[in-house]
Simulated scan of single mutants.
Amino acid sequence: MHDSAHDSHSFKLDLSPEQMLKVIFEYTAKIAIEKKLESVLILMANMGREMVVADRCTVWLIDAAHAELFTVVAHGIKEIRIPYGSGLVGAAISSGLPIFIDDAYEDARHNPESDKKTGYRTKSIMTIPFRNNQGEVMGAYQAINKLTQAQTFSTQDMEYLTLAASYSGKSLESIMLHQEIIETQKEIILAMGKIGEGRSKETGNHVKRVAQYSYILAIGLGMSEWEAEMLRSASPMHDIGKVAIPDSVLNKPGKLTEEEFEQMKQHADIGYEFLRNSKRQLLQAAAIVAWQHHEKWDGSGYPRGLMGEDIHLYGRITALADVFDALGSSRVYKPAWKLDRILELIEAERGRHFDPMVVDVFFKELPSILEVRDREADIPEME
Results as ranks from 00 to 15, higher is better:
residue 273 E to R: 14
residue 52 V to W: 05
residue 382 M to L: 12
residue 252 K to N: 00
residue 382 M to K: 13
residue 347 E to L: 06
residue 87 G to Y: 01
residue 90 G to D: 02
residue 38 E to G: 05
residue 22 K to V: 03
residue 244 A to E: 00
residue 220 G to T: 05
residue 91 A to C: 10
residue 251 N to W: 10
residue 7 D to C: 05
residue 178 H to F: 13
residue 146 K to L: 01
residue 242 K to I: 09
residue 20 M to K: 14
residue 355 D to L: 04
residue 98 P to L: 06
residue 329 S to M: 15
residue 144 I to V: 15
residue 245 I to T: 03
residue 27 Y to G: 01
residue 163 L to Y: 14
residue 207 V to A: 13
residue 105 Y to I: 01
residue 185 Q to S: 05
residue 216 I to N: 01
residue 44 M to L: 15
residue 256 L to Y: 00
residue 373 R to M: 11
residue 228 A to D: 02
residue 72 V to R: 09
residue 280 R to T: 11
residue 152 T to C: 03
residue 257 T to D: 01
residue 194 K to N: 15
residue 254 G to Y: 14
residue 110 H to A: 06
residue 382 M to C: 05
residue 130 F to Y: 06
residue 211 A to E: 02
residue 115 D to S: 10
residue 160 Y to C: 04
residue 122 T to C: 01
residue 71 T to R: 10
residue 244 A to R: 12
residue 349 E to I: 02
residue 330 S to W: 15
residue 14 D to R: 11
residue 13 L to T: 11
residue 156 Q to P: 02
residue 151 Q to P: 06
residue 346 I to V: 13
residue 203 T to L: 15
residue 349 E to W: 06
residue 146 K to Q: 00
residue 195 I to Y: 13
residue 18 E to N: 00
residue 56 R to C: 01
residue 321 A to H: 07
residue 191 A to Q: 10
residue 241 G to C: 02
residue 154 S to L: 07
residue 268 A to E: 10
residue 126 M to T: 00
residue 152 T to G: 09
residue 295 E to P: 08
residue 201 K to G: 03
residue 152 T to D: 04
residue 307 M to H: 14
residue 87 G to T: 12
residue 313 L to Q: 14
residue 188 I to F: 06
residue 288 I to V: 14
residue 22 K to Q: 11
residue 194 K to A: 12
residue 15 L to N: 04
residue 286 A to K: 03
residue 278 S to A: 14
residue 272 Y to L: 08
residue 163 L to A: 12
residue 214 S to C: 07
residue 295 E to V: 11
